[in-house]
């Protein structure tokens, strides 16, 4: 599992953002290290603290670094000169809160550094979609192709279900879909037939959230690959179950 470093001018901001992201993790969370403040209660950042944080949570799968703004970015870049680990480290250009949520949720789901980096980069998509701003609806080019082709490919498996949980595909159910999809050898997409949005890759947290699907919307789950049927059945069952939110 990759490690996550959160760099902020303010320890309280970083702790609160991490707490929010952990709310959305169901299983074992990734290792997260915070490098915030510049010592003695000074609001600011310190490159040596960032380097120590990277070394602390580094794993062979890598580390992704999320930063707030200004000197946080400079300090994170400078930290790469001080780190001891040879494991891969990626600085993310994601917006702070969205990026942390995407990274934590996907890391917990076992995603790779490349996938997490890409998702974090697209972390604004969901918000833009909700505000009716232009948004790339599919996060991954590979999955986009198979998504388009998928509907026509013989052997693709589909199911249609109505969202019954009260809040639709918000971050927690979206995260559980991403995690479930990662367990199957299948390319899975989801489209909202009620609103006509999608399809988006089901392994993309931000893609799923960008659908803006609400309770009562009918979604179509499509999959190709060796375990397509199992994956679709699993997601269908989760949808019917309201993603565990009906209790």
């Amino acid at each position: 599992m990759i490690g996550i470093v959160v760099v902020s001018h303010s320890p309280r901001l970083a702790e609160a953002a991490v707490e929010l992201a952990l709310e959305m993790v169901t299983g074992v969370p990734p290792a997260i290290a915070i490098a915030a403040g510049a010592g003695d209660g000074v609001i600011g950042t310190d490159a040596t603290k960032v380097a120590a944080a990277i070394d602390k949570v580094s794993t062979p799968e890598g580390v992704i670094v999320l930063m707030d703004l200004g000197s946080a970015v400079l300090s994170a870049a400078m930290a790469l000169e001080f780190i001891e680990t040879d494991n891969p480290v990626r600085l993310s250009d994601a917006p702070f809160v969205e990026g942390i949520v995407a990274a934590v949720v996907l890391a917990a789901a076992g995603a790779s550094l490349d996938e997490i980096s890409r998702e974090a980069h697209h972390a604004m998509d969901a918000k833009q979609g909700q505000l009716d701003l232009p948004v790339p609806v599919v996060a991954s080019p590979d999955d986009a192709e198979s998504a388009i082709a998928g509907s026509a490919i013989a052997g693709s498996v589909t199911a249609e279900e109505t969202l019954v949980n009260p809040d639709g595909l918000h971050s927690r159910p979206a995260a559980s879909i991403v995690k479930a999809v990662s367990l199957f050898d299948a390319k899975v997409t989801i489209a909202d037939l009620t609103t006509g949005t999608g399809p988006v890759a089901a392994n993309s947290l931000m893609g799923l959230m960008s659908l803006g699907s609400r309770t009562g919307d009918v979604i179509r789950i499509s999959a190709t690959g060796p375990q397509a049927a199992e994956a679709v059945e699993r997601l269908r069952a989760m949808t019917v179950d309201g993603f565990g939110e009906l209790r």
Partner: peptide, 18 residues
């Protein structure tokens, strides 16, 4: 350089530090 990096806090820390 290292002292500035660890004590300034703002962007001038990494900049003057570097």
């Amino acid at each position: 350089g290292m002292t500035l990096v660890t004590s300034v806090g703002g962007a001038s820390g990494p900049l003057y530090g570097t």
